[in-house]
Design a protein around this nucleic acid. Structure first.
Length: 256
DNA sequence: ATGGTGGCCCGGCCA
């Protein structure tokens, strides 16, 4: 079972690229972020014609998350499963092929002294509670999406240049450690020990072609799922060509 | 030099 996550940066602008990619790669489950559309505009029919069931949690102009699955899609849950609901559309969960899958779009944070940064840290605490509400540490859970956090310095092109900015602060990275302490693993890092491989590159300044990126699109999985993972990858080809998203899809392949 | 590109929807916000 091939599970993917992709921040598409507007599903309306990206639908041709997304359907082309689905046809080529044939993933079984896809977590999508930043659809930037209302539920009524979500192209469920187009995905259905390609064999995918889908659920979407949108709010219109900003945010918006979805899950596509061709291995079953049960118990869709929008927003956090416990505590205060997020006022923004940033998390959706469903059971797909025996795995509980959450598609998450973590707040950006903007700057360390910004209100949005405290919102981001609070959001990550709520994500921890969400994991515990939908699964046990010994269950089958994948939380995949745009975390807007680079787990460590291997995950950024130049740590020195990013010091003092969001995505790399200790407090943000500590929220990932909380997830790991609960029982989740960064499955990509299990398969690429020291490689500096990125999933996002700013549109500006030719950053993609200069290799100036970060790995912020992450797939956290419980131990039983991580141990079934035979391969992980980032499809940087999807960042090339006409009208790409600024993110590339990240994938994990599960054995039986 | 606080720029630059590309989404949103049509001047400025957000990433």
């Amino acid at each position: 079972m091939l599970i993917a996550t992709w921040n598409v940066n507007s599903l309306k602008a990206r639908l041709p690229r997304v359907t082309e990619w689905l046809a080529e790669v044939q993933p079984d489950v896809v977590c999508i972020q930043e659809t930037k559309m209302a539920d009524a505009a979500f192209p469920a029919l187009a995905f259905g014609e390609m064999g995918y069931d889908s659920v979407h949690f949108g709010q219109g102009q900003w945010n918006g998350v979805a899950i596509l699955s061709r291995v079953g899609l049960d118990k869709p849950r929008v927003n956090f499963a416990s505590g205060e609901p997020d006022p923004e559309a940033r998390i959706i969960t469903a059971d797909c092929g025996g795995v509980t899958v959450a598609s998450v779009y973590v707040p950006n944070g903007r700057a360390l002294d910004h209100d949005h940064y405290t919102y981001k840290l609070r959001w990550m605490a709520q994500l921890h509670a969400h994991a515990a509400a939908v699964s046990r540490p010994d269950g089958s859970l994948v939380i995949a999406g745009d975390y807007n956090i680079a787990p460590d310095d291997r995950d950024v092109w130049d740590p020195a240049k990013l010091e003092g900015q969001t995505h790399v602060s200790k407090a943000e990275r500590d929220t990932l450690t909380v997830l790991e302490d609960w029982g989740l693993r960064d499955v990509f890092r299990d398969h690429y020990r020291d490689e500096k491989l990125f999933s996002w590159w700013d549109y500006r300044g030719g950053d993609f072609h200069q290799g100036r990126g970060m790995r912020i699109d992450l797939m956290y999985a419980t131990k039983s799922v991580a141990e079934r993972t035979t391969w992980c990858g980032i499809d940087r080809n999807a960042r090339k060509g006409e009208q790409p998203s600024d993110h590339a899809p990240v994938m994990m392949l599960l054995g039986p």
